[in-house]
Write a protein that binds this DNA or RNA. Structure first.
Lengths: 129, 129, 129, 129
DNA sequence: GTGGTCTAGACCACA
DNA sequence: GTGGTCTAGACCACG
C-alpha cells in the first residue's frame, strides 16, 4: 500500500492518489475494514500539503470508498454499492468512449485496443503498480 | 456535425467540444479536407466566447486534427499520424486502466465491462451522439 | 519556374511563393532581367486571390528582388545588393540561430546539423524543388 | 534568465519569449527541474498581459519544454525527446534552407554563411544573449 | 500563493 | 470574410 506521486504528471496530486487507493481496493491490496494512515501521516509520507491529503480522504468518503470516523481514522468501506446501475453504466461508458475515440483516432484497430485493455486487466488483477 | 455543451459537466467546455470533434473525425462525420464552421460562427452557434472557440481550434490544430488557414478557415487534417506507437499505447492504456478500475470498483465484472465497451464501439461506428 | 502552394502548410501563401521566387533567383532558375508572369496570370495559374498575387510582387519589389514597371510587368532585378553588410549579417544570423536552437533542442549535434545544412545547400544548387 | 521583448520586431511577443526560453534551455541557462517565474510574475516583469504570459508557458508545455503544475508553478521538463527523427530533420532542414536562400540571395558565399553559423553556435554555447 | 478556464472586445494579418 | 495576437479582468481549481 505504498502510494507514489508523479510530479511530471499533469494530473493533480490528489487525483493520482485517489486513483491508486481505488486500485488497491479493487485488486485486494486494501479490504473492507482496513485502516488507512491518518491525514497527517499520509501528508508526511507523501510530502504533500495536509489540505491536499484531507481532500483525498474527503473525496473518497464522498464517493463511498472510505469511511471517516472522527478521532479514529479512515477505513475502507464495506462493499455496499449504493450507486444506481444506470449511473455505473454511464460512468464506465464515458471512460470507454474516451478510450475508444482516442485509440481509433490514433490509428489503432478495435482488436489492438482490446489487447491493451486485456493487458491492463491482467496487470490490475496481479496487483501491479 | 452539431455540437453541444453540457454546462452541468465539470469538464471545461473547450474540452467537451474538442472531444466531440475528435469523435466526428473518428466515426466519419468529418473527413479530411472538410471545412469546419469559422471560429466566429462556432462561437455564435455554441454561444461561447470567440476566444474560447479559437482555443478549441488551436488545440486541435496543435494535435494535428485540424489545419487552420488564415483568411480561409478551419479544415480537417489529412490522416498523418506521426505519434510514436509507444505513446499511443501509453495513452490508451491509461484510459483503459481508469475505466477498468472504476468499473470493477463499482461491482461490474470483466464481462459486463466488455459489453459496455462493445456498445460504445457500436455507437461510435454508427455516428451516434 | 513552376511554383506550388502547400495548403497544408501553416506558412501563408504569399510567403511560400516569395520563398520560391527567391530560391529561383538564387539557383539560377530566374536571372536578372527575366520577366515574370503578370499579377493576373500568377493569380490564375496558382488559383490564388489577385490581391495575394499583388502582395507577392510588392513585397519582392520592396526587398529589391523584383522591379515592377507600370504597364510592362515584373522583372528580376539586377544583382545590386544595396543592403548594408551589417544588415545581411543580422538577417542570416537570426535564421542560423533559430535553426541551431531548434536542432540542438531536439537532440541533434552540431555535426548532424551541419550535414543537414550541406544537404540543403546541394539541393539548392541543383535547383531541386 | 532575463527575457526581453522587442516591440519593433514583427514577431509576436509570445513567440519572442518562447524562443528565448528555448535558447536558455539549450545553452544551459535553464536546466531540467528548474523553476521559472510564475505566470503573474513573468507578466509583471515583462509588462505583458497575464494571459499572454500564460500562453507562452502553455505553448512550451505543449511542446514538452516545460511542465506546469497547478498550485506549484512552471518547471523545465526533463529531456525526453519523443519527436520522430524525420520530423526533427524536416524542421531543421526548413530553417537551413531559408537561411541559405536568404544568405546566397544577399550575395554571401557558402563559406561566409558557415562563418556566421559558427559565430552563432559559439554565442549560443557561451550563453550569450 | 499557483495555474486553468472563460468572457468581452480591440486591432492586425491574410485571402 | 477568415484566423492571429493582445489586453483587461473575473472566477475556479489546486497545494
Amino acid at each position: 500500500m505504498l502510494f507514489h506521486i508523479d510530479y511530471n504528471n499533469s494530473q493533480p496530486i490528489y487525483q493520482q492518489v485517489i486513483e491508486q487507493i481505488k486500485l488497491s481496493v479493487v485488486n485486494g491490496g486494501l479490504n473492507p475494514g482496513d485502516q488507512l494512515p491518518s491525514i497527517r501521516e499520509l501528508a508526511k509520507t507523501l510530502r504533500i500539503n495536509p489540505t491536499t491529503a484531507a481532500r483525498i480522504y474527503n473525496e473518497l468518503a464522498h464517493e463511498g470508498v472510505l469511511i471517516l470516523r472522527q478521532g479514529q481514522g479512515a477505513f475502507v468501506a464495506p462493499k455496499v454499492v449504493s450507486v444506481a446501475s444506470e449511473e455505473i453504466h454511464r460512468i464506465v461508458a464515458a471512460h470507454a468512449r474516451k478510450m475508444l475515440v482516442e485509440g481509433l483516432r490514433l490509428g489503432l484497430t478495435r482488436d489492438e485496443i482490446d489487447i491493451i485493455i486485456d493487458r491492463e486487466y491482467q496487470s490490475i488483477q496481479k496487483g501491479e503498480r
